[in-house]
Design a protein around this nucleic acid. Structure first.
Length: 228
DNA sequence: TGCCAGGCCGGGT
DNA sequence: ACCCGGCATGGC
């Protein structure tokens, strides 16, 4: 993407933050739960993920070593409510194998890996793509990477803040190039985007007219043309 | 009833 | 570098 006015994004963030307040986000209790949630929520409503997480919790399986000991078919059955359950059981197993073989089964050790290197490692794991990798890095590990999701694309489009159809990498580098490298800021910004997305920016039945950001948006300068 | 939800993979052009 | 079909449940 092209180089925009340098405080456009910070102003956009302040607009969201003052309209909605602090999010204090990802809805999970531990780093491992963040990771499991990130895989289970792929193209899936969070309410269904919660049911799957509840099943895992009641069987006391929300730790890497215990989950890895569970046979894959039983794991699949437990996460059934989150959809694509056979695929996702395989993905969880793939991550657990990676964690054990590459980092001795320790999340703390895994997250000591330099950000760019760990991102490459995660992307090589079956079932972990850009959004899942970045959610793990940011929300479970505190690494400063900006998470781009369907809401991010949609909101940029609805607010006429992006021209064309920039891909994941273009949107991410756009945010990262125009914000201070601050994981707390990335965390809060993405959380606000998800909040707006869930409540006022649905794919159909947009509810745009009730979006609390609406009164403030005309003050925002345009972000410029989308390019590579 | 049909559309939708915080993607990713594998195969094709 | 895109484009597509498959994967699957539960809520509205």
């Amino acid at each position: 993407m092209d180089i925009p006015p340098s405080d456009t994004l910070r102003e956009y963030f302040r607009t969201m933050a003052s309209a909605l307040g602090p999010m204090n986000w990802w809805p999970a209790r531990t780093p491992f739960e963040v990771i499991v949630g990130a895989i289970l929520t792929q193209n899936t409503a969070w309410v269904n993920v919660e049911k799957a997480l509840a099943n895992l919790r009641s069987d006391n399986l929300l730790t890497p070593s215990r989950m890895e000991r569970v046979p894959q078919p039983r794991l699949a059955r437990l996460i059934r409510p989150s959809g694509y359950f056979r695929q996702k059981a395989r993905k969880l197993k793939a991550f657990l194998r990676f964690l054990r073989e590459r980092h001795g089964g320790s999340l703390a050790r895994m997250f000591k890996t330099p950000t760019a290197e760990l991102r490459e490692q995660l992307l090589a794991v079956h079932g972990i793509g850009p959004e899942t990798a970045d959610s793990i890095l940011l929300y479970a590990g505190g690494h400063p990477v900006f998470v781009v999701d369907a809401y991010t694309h949609r909101i940029l489009h609805r607010h006429h803040l992006a021209a064309g159809r920039p891909d994941y990498a273009a949107v991410q580098s756009f945010f990262q190039a125009n914000l201070p490298r601050d994981s707390a800021l990335y965390n809060e910004f993405h959380a606000l985007i998800v909040n707006v997305g869930k409540n006022w920016c649905r794919k159909s039945r947009p509810l745009c007219d009730q979006c609390p950001l609406l009164p403030h948006l005309p003050e925002l300068p345009a972000l410029g043309e989308a390019r590579t």
